[in-house]
Amino acid sequence: MKRILVIDDAATVRLYHRGILESAGFEVSEAVNGLEALERLAEGPFDLYLVDINMPKLDGYGFLRELRAKDIPQGPAIMVSTEAEDNDQRRAYASGANIYLIKPVKPARLLAHVLTLLGESHS
């Protein structure tokens, strides 16, 4: 089963994402900040990362930079933000995100992106 790591300090958001992803049959792990997410990598790399930006301890950018510097299989990363600003998007891409979405992401949209990034068929 494809494994997805959801990284967000808001439990509500984690629950929201978990609900959507699990209903599509993916295995979901959670981390409450970038630091904890890095620790979770000890379990092995994930197939996809869903990363919030603003988090205590280590934010989303920081996590992605650390992740991309590691010599492990590099799964795609979705950066989820509440900012629709160009600057943040560029920063997300530079840090290692593969797509930048604005919260709240409607279930159908999120799922489509996840399917694309996990190589799952859309039909």
Partner: peptide, 13 residues
Amino acid sequence: GRLRAVGATLAAL
């Protein structure tokens, strides 16, 4: 790592 992630993304797509 960033390039490899792009590679993985395109492959998945």
